[in-house]
């Protein structure tokens, strides 16, 4: 690990200024992702601004929605009674991620900003445009089993790894941000970006911008929800593909649907066309198959991830079935 400076301000403004001022400074929350990357030499911030003293860990219900503080722990959110009752999909998605030990450290803000698990990104001896722009994308012609089938570019085909994010994008969440130029709200679907020509940028956050909370509006999705994650072992592995489904059913008719994929793109992949397709249709396997076909429009595979073209729609069908039966 490189030498670095470490500060732990107790004022939000001080934290923001410290990072805004210094291009080599980073916020640190649970540290479960950032410290790993520092140990592997992938990231070498010269200053760490620990935000754990900021009062950002609350989980509240106000103005027709949940407000989850950026420092609320993954385990605290998943176990929160309000969250479980109002947004069970979110609780399921969080619990599908990492391990109990990690969830006890990981924060809401850190989780959504965790970086890709692409192995080329992690190995400083291999090329990676995200880690070192201009060196080439190691995965493009390399081992790309875990990589994207939607929204990639020839500069980067990595996927965003968070499970929680998949639920948040499906639930129309909004990210609350505070920065050197003031506060703003970012629709969750706009937080992460596609790689395009600048894969080194994961998100639309500006330098120094601090996530303070995420808002999840109340909705009808309290019962027929399911987060299903296909992975190579029963727990503690990243998704090959995952799906978040929230249905509002009237008898057997679908009134509204929220769908998203994880493990398929550089951002959590909301499936609006398939959602619209479902509205007014009966909740049957046949409908689900058709919706899955709609969801897959535009997907394209690489050498080792061809299976995702089949696994993704099948996962969505399975998740829709689980949600309808929930």
């Amino acid at each position: 690990m490189n030498q670095f400076q470490y500060i732990r301000p107790s004022k939000q403004q001080a934290a923001i200024e410290a990072v805004a001022r210094d291009a080599n400074a980073k916020f640190i929350a649970g540290g479960t992702n950032l410290v790993d990357l520092m140990k592997r030499g992938v990231m070498a911030p010269q200053k760490l601004v620990d935000i754990n003293r900021l009062p950002l860990a609350k989980i509240e219900h106000e103005n027709g929605g949940l407000r989850i503080g950026a420092l609320a722990l993954n385990s605290a959110v998943a176990d929160d009674r309000q969250v479980r009752e109002r947004q069970p999909l979110l609780a399921q998605a969080i619990n599908a991620g990492a391990s109990a030990q990690l969830r006890n450290m990981a924060t809401t803000g850190g989780n959504m900003l965790q970086r890709t698990r692409c192995p080329y990104f992690y190995d400083t001896a291999l090329p990676c445009n995200k880690r070192e722009p201009g060196t080439g994308c190691g995965a493009l012609e390399g081992i790309n089993r875990m990589h994207a089938i939607f929204g990639f570019s020839d500069k980067c085909i990595a996927v965003h790894p968070s499970d929680m994010s998949v639920a948040l994008v499906a639930l129309d969440a909004t990210v609350l941000v505070s920065g050197p130029k003031g506060d703003r709200r970012i629709p969750f679907a706009d937080l992460h970006r596609l790689p395009g020509d600048t894969p080194e940028k994961d998100t639309t956050l500006e330098p120094g911008e601090l996530i303070t909370a995420v808002d999840v509006p109340d909705g009808p999705f309290t019962k027929h929800v399911s987060y299903y994650k296909v992975r190579e072992r029963a727990s503690y592995a990243f998704a090959l593909v995952s799906a978040a489904v929230a249905l509002d059913l009237d008898g057997n008719t679908i009134k509204a649907a929220r769908l998203a994929f994880g493990g398929v793109a550089h951002k959590p992949w909301r499936l609006q066309t398939a959602e619209q397709f479902l509205v007014g249709k009966p909740a049957t396997e046949e409908t689900f198959r058709q919706a899955a076909a709609v969801a897959m429009q535009g997907a394209k595979a690489f050498k080792h991830n061809e299976y995702k073209l089949k696994l993704a729609p099948n996962t969505l069908i399975q998740t829709l079935k689980n949600a309808a039966a929930a």
């Binding site: 192995p119 190995d123 001896a125 291999l126 190691g138 012609e141 390399g142 081992i143």
Partner: peptide, 10 residues
Amino acid sequence: DDRFGRYVTK
């Protein structure tokens, strides 16, 4: 990754 002779699952 045989192009580099380097493991990607370390």
